[in-house]
């Protein structure tokens, strides 16, 4: 009995420690997901004579396991002009790229220091939800009077992304040697127990591992892998490639709807799950012609998207289905049939 009460006491104490650490942390609680691209301008400061052009390089690094799509740079400052920059269609996980940005300062521009403001727009998808991210970036411009010796730089008409040279490959013998050393040390340890030379072998593997790992930026890569939501861990379903088909009960529910309903369907060209959601809405309209759908491309009509809560803190989330009279919105395609019917059956 004494033993059992000790176990219970132990258990209780452990529970108290866990519960208190949980509650302290949860009360402080904040949850933020990192943006997936690291964007910077190099140099971050430009000196341009009035009426002339200069370039800076936009450095983009995808630090996530997700592919970033349609990366676009837009100049927000109206008093400057920028040579059109090609859209970076796809940036694969852990890839980096750079692109030259040419700016022209007009003749009548005032002299002195000023800011040039850019907006970077890109999209990515996690599971069945796709996000569009807007980030602002600024560049310090130092406008000075034109000197007579200034040579006008040749401005290329369209600038495309430049892929940096691949990092140097280490000879395969290095990882093989490290592997042999590690396995050897562990096998010997199992056999003879701990000896100083086995510890030394392991320390060599550790040193080599840290040296090479840090040299190749693998700590940064590891951080990037950790920073992005692991959909496998959470259990988020990926976007389906098949056509949806409404069930018999959903069809019956749709036929029962008497009032006309107005829906807004928010979509985007970069959204992978939107075709599935759109096909399901189309099927619903086919069965119940009282439902009218207006399709809104969030890239073309950002104001409407913002008005209906599709853009939240500069993040656009699609697919989204909005019902006007109840002011309700559905995101994603998970269990869409049930949620869509619920949305449609709700009385205003």
């Amino acid at each position: 009995m004494a033993h059992r009460s000790a176990v219970v006491r132990n258990l209780r104490r452990t529970m108290v420690v866990i519960a208190s650490s949980f509650s302290v942390l949860l009360s402080i609680g904040a949850f933020a997901q990192s943006p997936i691209l690291q964007i910077s301008l190099k140099p971050g400061e430009l000196s341009i004579p009035r009426g002339s052009s200069a370039s800076t390089s936009l450095q983009v690094a995808n630090t996530s396991i997700h592919e970033a799509d349609e990366i676009e740079i837009v100049l927000l400052s109206e008093s400057l002009t920028m040579v059109p920059v090609a859209v970076i269609e796809v940036l694969d996980p852990f890839e980096t790229t750079s692109i030259d940005v040419w700016l022209t300062v007009p003749d009548e521009s005032p002299e002195g220091e000023r800011e040039a403001l850019f907006e970077i727009v890109y999209t990515y998808c996690i599971g069945d939800l796709c996000f569009q991210i807007l980030e602002e970036l600024s560049l310090t411009l130092n406008v000075h009077p034109p000197s007579e010796t200034t040579v006008e730089p040749i401005v290329p008409p369209i600038v495309g992304p430049v892929k940096p040279a691949a990092p140097p490959q280490w000879p395969a013998i290095v990882p093989i040697m490290l592997g042999i050393l590690l396995v050897g040390a562990l096998v010997l340890a199992r056999w003879v127990g701990r000896r100083w030379w086995i510890v030394l072998m392991l320390l060599a593997v550790m040193g080599g591992g840290f040296g090479l790992g840090l040299r190749f930026g693998q700590d940064q890569q590891a951080q990037s892998i950790g920073a992005v939501l692991c959909t496998s861990c959470v259990g988020i379903e990926e976007a389906p490639r098949r056509e949806p088909s409404l069930s018999a009960s959903a069809r019956e529910a749709l036929e029962r709807i008497a009032e006309p309903i107005e829906l807004l369907f928010f979509t985007a060209t970069w959204c992978q799950a939107c075709p599935y959601a759109k096909a399901m809405v189309d099927q619903a309209v086919e069965i119940q012609p009282g439902i009218s759908v207006r399709v809104v491309d969030v890239d073309e009509d950002k104001d409407t998207a913002r008005l209906h809560g599709i853009v939240q803190s500069e993040r656009t989330i699609v697919p989204a289905i909005y019902r006007a009279d109840t002011d309700r919105v559905l995101f994603g395609i998970e269990d869409l049939e049930t949620r869509l019917i619920e949305l449609l059956e709700e009385s205003p």
């Binding site: 510890v199 392991l202 591992g209 840290f210 790992g213 190749f216």
Partner: peptide
């Protein structure tokens, strides 16, 4: 990726 950093960390913890 050849996981140098990962191996180093595991050896550190293991040791």
């Amino acid at each position: 990726t050849v996981p140098y950093y990962w191996i180093a960390m595991i050896v550190l913890y293991g040791l």
